[in-house]
Write a protein that binds this DNA or RNA. Structure first.
Lengths: 263, 263
DNA sequence: CGCGCGATTGAAGCGACTCAACGGCAGTGG
DNA sequence: CCACTGCCGTTGAGTCGCTTCAATCGCGCG
């Protein structure tokens, strides 16, 4: 079947204003905004925004939808690095090289602003608010990656999954959406790759969290029943570094490793 | 004993020029540079540049030395997120909040440029080269975090360590230093935290790589004997995603999991 | 000199990986 | 309209590698 055209052109200040809002900066209503034309690209679920190894003429700001960023190894193994949502920046990895180090695919119908690199630099130059927004977004992306490392650092797979769910929940509530009811758009395999465990283990970990009454799981619909409990459960770490410095050792949760499944 | 004062003030364009070089951008010799005073802070090994949770009035550009960025959990477990070297940006994590999400400590004597946030924005505004340099550095930091995820994603601990060493080697050669002979400044526990394994496992993995004749290890001095072999060994991934798309499956190295130790 | 910490090595237990089979759902094509 | 085919998700069984606990050695620093 024929799809409608995927590329619009929104002229004028209104689009710039919306992008600044997306980036989390507020501008004076009286502020004069450059009327640079802003391209919008719409994608269907499953379409790629850009491919790994492709040249990078632009960066992107997600307007709607969800993306998966990933890297494919020589042997075909797919490593997932993150899930981008409204307000996130995509394509930044190519700013220090000239090619994308990862591919990006839409997990649902989506739309992004396309900012050509020259425009990107020109906007940052002429519009301090844009620069601040970009730095905000970039900083947020680094925090996300940091939290990814944090999730992967957890020993027990159930703890990794709990951290992942807490992370998702926080992101949802930051967007003003419900923090309790999640509709996952990615497969178990995606989550497994993201968290560094096999996809079967993700299944089992979901079952374990459900048994603990922390969440209710029905395929990709996840309901958080006890957010506080889930957060507490997510705190479990590996054996601490021998309490060398006098860090406050207030052990909120489980004794050492993970959980004793109540039958 | 009394230490010399740790805060210098370098006035004039020369410092700005050096910082731009650090950030990897080249400027025309004739270019007029703003003569903004640039603070330099020097640190002894073991000193903290800033603490987790502290307010973030500035960002930093590493001039010399090596830093460790980490986060301390409630139970005292220390998660390492990265090691920063000459040319790296520090403190970016606070740009989207107003507090540092991780602490930073010098692993050897070091010095950094201290750029107050207002100056940071003013410089970016008035000096396009600075802006480009910052974006370059930030993009590089994101790539580093991405590679961290890549290291932690490897199943076998020896593969993780191999990737870590390759990563270090590349960074060294990017700085124009020897890529074969590494002097690690971090402890086994730091590496273990960074790679998501116990520090004993790091020891054993070093021994395994040494047995394979890929490296020679003497405490913190590591010599790479076979860089190509190490890189090949570092390719090992977890079981690929069933070769769904027709990705070229050129298996360069080990059959499935890890290694059969030759006695 | 001795204390502490980092590094190494050993032993034992368990948790995640792999392989495998099955049910469910969706998209496709007869 | 319905079989067919993939893929996703779940569950089971066995193996193996990592974690944890522990002891020992070496080095640097007070």
């Amino acid at each position: 079947m024929n799809k409608p055209p995927m590329l619009d052109l929104h002229p004028g200040v209104c689009a710039v204003h919306e992008m600044l809002e997306l980036l989390g900066v507020s501008v004076d209503p009286g502020q004069k905004l450059p009327d640079m034309p802003l391209a919008v690209r719409r994608l269907r679920a499953g379409q790629s925004l850009f491919f790994e190894g492709a040249p990078a003429p632009s960066i992107y700001v997600v307007r709607a939808g969800t993306f998966k960023a990933f890297h494919t190894a020589e042997d075909g193994y797919e490593q997932v690095f993150g899930f981008a949502r409204r307000g996130d920046l995509l394509g930044c990895d190519a700013l220090s090289g000239d090619r994308h180090l990862m591919g990006t695919v839409a997990l649902e119908d989506a739309s992004v602003y396309v900012v050509a690199l020259p425009d990107f630099y020109a906007l940052a130059q002429s519009l301090p608010a844009f620069y601040r927004g970009v730095m905000r977004a970039v900083s947020g992306a680094m925090i996300d990656l940091t939290q990814l490392a944090d999730m992967m650092a957890a020993v027990a797979s159930e703890v990794r999954l709990a951290r992942f769910l807490v992370h998702l929940s926080r992101r949802m509530s930051n967007c003003g959406q419900s923090a309790k009811s999640l509709h996952l758009l990615m497969t178990r395999r995606d989550i497994g790759s993201y968290l560094g465990v096999a996809h079967e283990t993700i299944s089992r970990s979901f079952a374990a969290l459900a048994t603990l009454q922390l969440v209710k799981v029905d395929q990709r619909k996840v309901e958080i029943l006890d957010l506080a409990g889930l957060q507490g459960f997510a705190q479990g770490t590996r054996a601490p570094a021998k309490a060398s410095s006098g860090a406050a050792v207030a052990r909120l949760r489980p004794p050492g490793r993970a959980l004793a499944l109540a039958a």
